[in-house]
């Protein structure tokens, strides 16, 4: 895979991740209704074709849309919920079957906190998800962490609905290793 296509994969992954969150309550089409239409990724005209058919269990699209690429946290917590662990179990199975992919584990917080603390909290969340995947046999060498704190919300509405989906760890498929 070329560098360019890797970059496109990452961008497309971000756009898809934003658009296919089942708890966002919005459409999956990247339209404006759920606030993702103007985020710069969808408008870039990136095709979802790179990611494969979500019906193909080996596709990145399947990982993102069917398995779910993210887990959520309660306020100020980095403890994995039962639902989150189930998602990570499924992620681990996919990652263990598709070992060519490396992962960026993104940690995020909602907006109700100071910037510095939220970067630390986001790192805690990303680390919690990463450690869980390691426990399920995913190699630590394939993963790295990035915390965005409160500064990369999937949706901004200053209400509980958005805070709940912004407190998250996202397993972003970053590219092909080795």
């Amino acid at each position: 895979m070329t560098l360019t296509s890797k970059a496109l994969l990452v961008l497309a992954g971000l756009a898809l991740a934003a658009c296919n969150n089942p708890r966002a309550g919005g459409t999956f089409g990247g339209g404006g209704a759920d606030g993702f239409g103007n985020d710069g990724f969808v408008d870039a005209g990136i095709s979802t074709g790179n990611l494969g058919d979500p019906n193909d269990p080996r596709s990145v699209a399947h990982f993102q849309q069917r398995i779910g690429d993210r887990v959520f946290f309660t306020t100020d917590s980095s403890s994995l919920t039962a639902e989150g662990r189930a998602t990570l179990d499924a992620q681990a199975r996919w990652l263990n079957a598709n070992t060519q992919f490396s992962i960026v584990m993104e940690g995020h917080a909602d907006e109700r906190g100071t910037r510095d603390y939220n970067i630390a909290l986001g790192e805690r969340r990303a680390n919690a998800a990463m450690q869980y995947l390691i426990g399920q046999g995913v190699s630590a060498n394939r993963m790295r962490v990035v915390s965005y704190g409160k500064d990369r919300p999937v949706e901004a509405c200053a209400a509980q609905r958005c805070w709940d989906i912004n407190r998250r760890a996202v397993t972003a498929i970053a590219g092909v290793t080795g």
Partner: peptide
């Protein structure tokens, strides 16, 4: 400065 690693800052 702060450095966050392994869930600890």
């Amino acid at each position: 400065f702060s450095a966050a690693r392994g869930g600890n800052t």
